[in-house]
Amino acid sequence: MSELIFHMVKEAPTPVAPFSHAVEVDGWVMITGQMPTFPDDPEAPLPEGIEAQTRRVMDNLVIVLNGLGLGLDRVVNSRVYITEFERDYALMNQVYKSYFPEGKLPARTCVGVTGLACQALVEIDLMVRKN
């Protein structure tokens, strides 16, 4: 196993807890779950509703990926956590799917949870193959 590389992406949102934006090893990159916070104003209120929050989370993931020279086309797996599963699942899926190339959706797990940091409605993390 090669050395672990811990990445902090300057343009990405300020972490809400002690973590790296991504960790890389042996051609794999694990992207930490992103919250619907704003990179330029971490104290701003979260966007209203699951669609806006999912867009913000996906945009934050793209910022981290781009900071590492990667894109969503390299995503192998994702994990989605939502607090209002029955209410928000379908709307979250519509936004989520729109970010990926046609026919290239990653494997995924989606879990309903009782709470997330920042009182967010959604958090998403990624597993990416670099090469």
Results as ranks from 00 to 15, higher is better:
A44K: 15
L105I: 03
G33E: 10
G67V: 06
G33M: 08
D73A: 04
V25R: 12
D73L: 03
A17Q: 04
E51P: 03
D59E: 07
R108M: 13
Y99S: 01
R74F: 07
A120F: 02
H7Q: 08
I31W: 07
V111G: 01
V128S: 12
I50L: 04
L121A: 08
L126Q: 08
D26H: 13
P45N: 09
I63C: 09
N93T: 10
M1V: 06
I31R: 06
L4F: 12
P39E: 09
L91R: 10
E84I: 00
N66H: 08
M58T: 11
N66Q: 13
R55F: 02
N60L: 04
E51L: 00
H21L: 14
N93V: 07
A117G: 00
V75F: 04
G71N: 15
V23E: 01
P39R: 13
T32V: 06
C118R: 14
L105M: 10
V76A: 10
A90Q: 08
T14C: 11
V16F: 09
V23C: 00
R108H: 14
R74T: 08
T83K: 06
N131W: 11
T109P: 00
P36M: 14
K104M: 14
D73N: 07
R129E: 08
M92H: 12
V113E: 03
V23K: 00
A120N: 01
E43L: 08
V95Q: 00
A22G: 06
L68F: 14
M58S: 02
R79G: 09
T114W: 08
E84R: 04
Y99G: 00
D26Y: 11
C110L: 10
F19Y: 08
P45Y: 02
E48Y: 11
G112M: 05
T109Q: 05
L126V: 02
A44I: 05
R74M: 11
Y99T: 00
L91E: 14
N131P: 13
E84D: 13
N60H: 07
R87Q: 14
V23I: 12
S78K: 01
G112L: 01
E11G: 02
D26Q: 13
P42M: 07
R55E: 08
V9N: 15
I82R: 05
E3G: 13
Q34V: 04
I5N: 04
A22V: 09
T83E: 04
G71H: 03
L105V: 00
V23M: 02
P42I: 15
